[in-house]
Amino acid sequence: MDPAIQSIEFLARSEHRVMALEALLNKRLDRRDLRAVTGASDPTVGRVVRDFEDRSWIVRDGPHYELTPLGEFVADLFLNCVRE
């Protein structure tokens, strides 16, 4: 399967992933902020963060997470697709 399609499928399967990605597009957030934005439990936020780190979409700076250039690219493309 095409990696781009796999990324879209990965995001589309979880509302929490989409909300976290969109929130991180706007600013750096810590886990508490991500829980508040997504309404997800701490274990769920932990999985989202690990998944995003594994895909090199985010990096951690102290307690905060921010999108990498690749993460920004993915977020822009995905969010533009779902908004149209």
Rank of each mutant, 00 (worst) to 15 (best):
P3M: 10
P3E: 13
P3D: 08
P3A: 12
A4D: 09
A4V: 10
I5M: 11
I5Y: 06
Q6M: 11
Q6P: 01
I8E: 11
I8V: 14
E9L: 13
F10S: 09
F10D: 05
L11A: 04
L11N: 04
L11G: 04
A12Q: 14
A12R: 15
R13W: 06
E15H: 13
E15Y: 10
E15V: 12
E15D: 12
E15C: 08
H16Y: 10
R17D: 01
V18P: 03
V18C: 07
A20Y: 02
A20D: 02
A20K: 07
E22I: 07
E22V: 07
E22G: 13
A23M: 07
L24E: 00
L24Q: 06
L24I: 06
L25A: 14
N26A: 14
K27H: 13
K27G: 12
R28T: 12
R28I: 03
L29W: 08
L29A: 10
L29V: 07
L29I: 07
D30Y: 03
D30N: 15
R32H: 11
D33V: 01
D33Q: 05
D33P: 00
L34T: 04
R35D: 00
A36Q: 08
V37C: 06
V37D: 06
V37I: 09
T38H: 04
T38R: 01
T38C: 05
T38P: 03
T38Q: 04
T38N: 03
G39D: 00
G39E: 00
G39A: 00
S41R: 12
S41M: 02
S41T: 13
S41D: 08
D42L: 11
P43V: 01
T44F: 03
V45L: 07
G46N: 10
G46S: 12
G46L: 06
G46A: 06
G46F: 01
R47P: 03
R47T: 07
R47G: 03
V48G: 01
V49I: 15
V49E: 04
V49W: 00
R50H: 05
R50F: 01
D51N: 09
F52D: 00
F52A: 00
E53H: 07
E53Q: 13
D54Y: 06
R55F: 00
R55G: 02
S56W: 05
W57G: 01
W57D: 00
W57T: 03
I58Y: 00
V59D: 11
V59S: 09
R60N: 06
D61T: 14
G62E: 09
P63R: 15
P63Y: 07
Y65E: 09
Y65F: 15
Y65Q: 13
E66D: 11
E66H: 10
L67D: 04
L67E: 05
P69I: 05
L70K: 15
L70E: 14
G71T: 00
E72S: 07
F73A: 15
F73Y: 14
V74C: 03
V74W: 01
V74P: 02
D76N: 14
L79R: 14
L79S: 11
L79W: 09
N80I: 10
